[in-house]
């Protein structure tokens, strides 16, 4: 228990990641799905930084930064889409979004 272990960060991120996956797959509210995606991205970020620290390189932090930027963009566009869907169908229930049904 003396030193910080690499694994504790990785396992934490695994929990976040799994929770995020569950959310993406199981939630019918589009906004919550977006939040779940944030969870996943953050899990990845923790991994990146942890490995960066582990290897003593700065690249991990830099890429985490990029991920944050991309996440911001993603949320922006994602919410715009959600809004559009809501405007068209008065609902953000993904179960009703099934135009791809064959």
């Amino acid at each position: 228990m003396d030193d910080l272990m690499l694994n504790q960060f990785l396992l934490l991120s695994a929990i976040l990641f799994s929770a995020g996956v569950y959310g993406v797959l199981a939630k019918r509210n589009a906004v919550i799905v977006l939040m779940s995606i944030e969870l996943i991205l953050n899990a990845v970020n923790i991994n990146l930084v942890a490995f960066g620290a582990h290897n003593g390189t700065i690249a991990g932090s830099v890429f985490a930064l990029f991920v944050i930027a991309v996440a911001a963009a993603e949320v922006g566009v994602g919410l715009a889409i959600v809004l559009l869907i809501y405007r068209n169908r008065k609902s953000v229930d993904l179960d009703e979004v099934a135009q791809m049904k064959g």
């Binding site: 996956v21 569950y22 797959l25 199981a26 939630k27 509210n29």
Partner: peptide
Amino acid sequence: LTNDYWYVGAFTGVIL
């Protein structure tokens, strides 16, 4: 809030 296949997701999440 959850859809009909939530157990697939749960299963996936836990196994993952």
